[in-house]
Amino acid sequence: MNAIAEDITRMTGAMTADDLAPLRDFSGTVGDFTSPQARMVCRNVDVHYGDKHAIKNVSLDIGRNEVVAMIGPSGCGKSTFLRCLNRMNDTVPGCRVRGRITLDGQDIYDKQQDVVPLRAQVGMVFQKPNPFPKSIYENVAYGPRIHGLTNDKIELDALVETSLRKAGLWDEVKDRLQQPGTGLSGGQQQRLCIARTIAVSPEVILMDEPCSALDPIATARIEELIDELREQYSIAIVTHSMQQAARVSQRTAYFHLGDLVEVGETSQIFTNPSHKLTEDYITGRFG
């Protein structure tokens, strides 16, 4: 083993394989998981897929005007957790969610809660751009139509335009709104999906690795867009790119094997994380 690796191991505290695998001495999340202006509040959330305990007692807030990044090695549960926030896990057979998740004080897993309005409030953008095989206009108009948000064509036109403007796509597509959305480039498609999500005026936007299928320039445009959207929405983003988490988020949450190991200000997580696992993951010592 390299001398510097030894030194760093000594400085950050000795780790053995035992410390990692089941996290036996896991004694709760390091750092403050609350947010002063919390919009979504998750407390003691457990998720099981059949026998698999995918999320273990996770508490995390998503605040107003902030981007919360969720990072962690594959299979750490970050995407599962994200999909709990708009109940996209409902369709997965054998998936059980326990604990309390509220949106503006309202329990989203309450029996009275209908998923249709919930998903209008908590939008989601996926890993692979998935525009519907319809025109650009129809893609954006889809949500407003099914929720009956507009009264006439003029209102709908206006809503489509503002949504596309907010997504930074208007100037690129205003002359070809009737062309299929699938004909756009990957980055444009992803921004179209964001516009589609914005069109139903959500409060929270969930993003599941939104840039993993995009080239660096398209990625930069999406990151810029995320920063702009923060003015109006709460954003939770799952990403495999630690640099991306560092660039776009205000707070970062590190997941490991279903545990939320550490939450903190992004600047602190990336310069001086408190937990050994976070440090190892961020510096590329495993994962």
Partner: peptide, 12 residues
């Protein structure tokens, strides 16, 4: 994963 304490994944 067992070799966590052994330094970076990228040894270089």
């Amino acid at each position: 994963m067992n070799d966590v304490a052994k330094g970076h994944t990228v040894q270089r």
